[in-house]
Design a protein around this nucleic acid. Sequence first.
RNA 1: GCCCGGGUGGCGGAAUGGCAGACGCGGCGGACUCAAAAUCCGCUGUCCGAAAGGACGUGUGGGUUCGACUCCCACCCCGGGCACCA
Length: 832
Amino acid sequence: MSSPVAAPYVPQEIEPKWQSFWVAERTYEVDNDDPRLLAGRGYYVLCMYPYPSGAAHMGHVRNYTFGDLLTRYRTMQGDAVLSPMGFDSFGLPAENAAIKTGVHPREFTDARIAELTNSLTRIGCVYDWRREVRSHNPEYIRWTQWIFLRMWEAGLAYRATAPVNWCPGCQTVLANEQVIDGRCERSDDFVEKRDLEQWFFKITDYAQQLLDDLELVDWPERVVIQQRNWIGRSEGAEFDMVICDASGAQRADGLSMRVFTTRPDTSFGMTFCVLAPDHELVEVITADEHRGEVAAFVEATRQMREIDRLSTEGPIDKRGCRTGAYALNPFTGQAVPIFLADYVLSTYGTGAIMAVPGQDQRDWDFARAYDLPIIRTVEPPSEWTGEAYTGEGPAINSEWLNGLDVAAAKAAAIDWLEAQGIGERTVNYRLRDWLLSRQRFWGCPIPILYCPDCGLRAVPDDELPVLAPDDVEFRPTGESPLRLHEGFLHATCPDCGGPATRETDTMDTFVDSSWYYLRFADPASDAPFRANEVAKWLPVDQYIGGAEHAVLHLMYARFFTKALSDLGYVPTDLREPFRRLFTQGLIRLGGTRMSKSKGNLVAPEDIVNTYGADTLRLAHLATKPPAEDVDWEDFGLEGCARFLARLWRLAVPDNDLRGGDRSGPTTDADAVVESGRHRLIAEVTKDFERWSYNTAVAKFMAEVNDLYRYVQTADGPHGATLDAAIDSVLVLLAPACPHLTAELWARRHDGEHVHELTWPAADPAMLVADHVEIPVQVDGKVKARLSVPADADAAAIEATALADERIVELLGGREPARVIVVPGRLVNVVRS
RNA sequence: GCCCGGGUGGCGGAAUGGCAGACGCGGCGGACUCAAAAUCCGCUGUCCGAAAGGACGUGUGGGUUCGACUCCCACCCCGGGCACCA
């Protein structure tokens, strides 16, 4: 007699079948009038939309595995789950490829999108593809431009000059990435800083809200802190200082300069002032005998490469320059010299500072280099051996501030400045306005016209989108081909009908990604989105992406949401776009980050072809907590493949593990299996909720190990008990390994679909055993074990423990000093 | 320099005040096989011991507690982020 030959597990055969099924059956499409959504059971899962660079890499697989698991899990929980996908399809690589190969960026990009879409499907990820967006599609461009114009009308977009990287050889602006060690990556010329007209978004208007509203989101602490630091709020005071000569004599024009400080309490210790080299007063105040020196210093700073300017190394005496002018310290009436220094930035505060070397290490170093006096105004602790002291302490050498602590002295100093009418309390932010214009082709054109008579004019809404022409020549200059395209450049002024020229700059791709999550909620309308439809889904319930976007993308998207909310295009109470954020760890190989440029990629497709998508997905879940970085070398691929094959052999109909099933009444051993099944339901659910996928996988493996032992017991398994256990494993595993579970469920249940089932609930009664085994410690070390009724009280447990043979022996007839009983947990007998 | 993570067997990790090392990898042994692979079963922190058992053990040093990987203080090391922001 031969045992039946069960079908072997061949993922390559079953996976494509189910992938087609989910698309054909529209399993994961969801409408905005879905009854579950209208009943308050909507759930918006969003993975950061990818830049389409070709087939998926391991980082994508990790990201989208988490997203897909959540989509399928929440759906089984009964939610209407919005799970959209799109492509951040503008950007430099496509343009560089065009320059290199002549292939149009659109053609190149669409081909990469097809590859990426294909790999997403191949790893079993499901989306509502009807809602797909691509940044470079004309409809999307249209609405990006529309939003830009609304921002412009609201005064939130403006033009201003800003320093940019200029290559004199190529006669063009370079992106920061194209500047290598201060030289142009193409021509090798030294790159200069040039002031050019650029477009900005006024994100600084929202600095305080962007800071405050971090309270409203459930994000990783680390990301919140990074956002906070980036906004960089600092409180202090600004005040005016009268310019004078060395003797303290005021100038005829009565000129003064304004400084910003966070430490007005230390003003009595001010022994010099510093201006940024590009401060507007430099030219005016410089004394004649210092003009040559100052001009040379200003020019040198201008030419200095960013990397040097930001370096704290190098001799400090080369980093400053005397102006020969002085300023009156209003607190003391003393004249202090004014210096220039490259470390003072014109873009922060007032571009001018008072220097207090006693309380600031930079000022201390500078004072030492230029032989300037140092006066301490905060008493350091007696054991203090350092230089500048920035800590707490009573004010000294400060006349009427003496004895006050730092906070009180600050307040008193500011009150005094305000009373004198020369200054006031101020708040400064490190956050700068967002420079959004790029001198690039493959981006969203900025829909603005320049009319010689009417000035800046918006392209009328009914002429949107402004699309870049296809017949452009991609030159290896780094300059946008749009500027050289006569047909694009020349247009008609909408106001006077005269000739106008088009803006040829395009938008930063972060603009596209600042509103795509809104479009997903309402993708097909004759507006970018409608507030009432947005209100149904937003804020995103769970946003998933890489930690590298912790600052820029999230900050910009938050800004857009707030601005669009204020402008009435999204609901007024939608102040934050992403309620919960999860940032996944990086994937490394042999300790270094996987990247194309390092050539150390592991292609997911190869793994899928050999092991199957379910094994790869499971390995991503099993290896480590999802937030942590993970090395490909540590992936337990073999273990996961073995586990799935083991599960298949156990669950597939007509398998040769089964045969001697019992039926009829159940035994104690069966009850253990049944309660194990309920425990698995409870624990996996809990682990899924807290994103502890690695421990969930461990519990699946332990359960299958238990069931193997159960199948092989001498009496044989109770058939119904075993099948219930196997079914529970399949249902619980369905979000993680969708293909294998779908296939096995269909085979076991007459073509039913596991993903359409309701998520199971554990029976609480099945989770409590009637007896529990608890350890008995003596002086904190486990010496015995007791089996006691689960509901036994402390006194009963103590009595049982003290009667235990081994405990009696260890006590040697003495009374224990103390007995700690934690019912259901343990007993600790303390001897001394 | 500042901020944030993290240090647990041969390896990835589990345990968030209560049995340290779940689960996986690797290793060892057994079953099946002519044999091997695959598969199935078992063992596997270190040291002492034939065993029973004992001692030690979560980066280091202290502390709190009946009890600490877990909480507190100080320090060392690794990873990441920001970095002249007045």
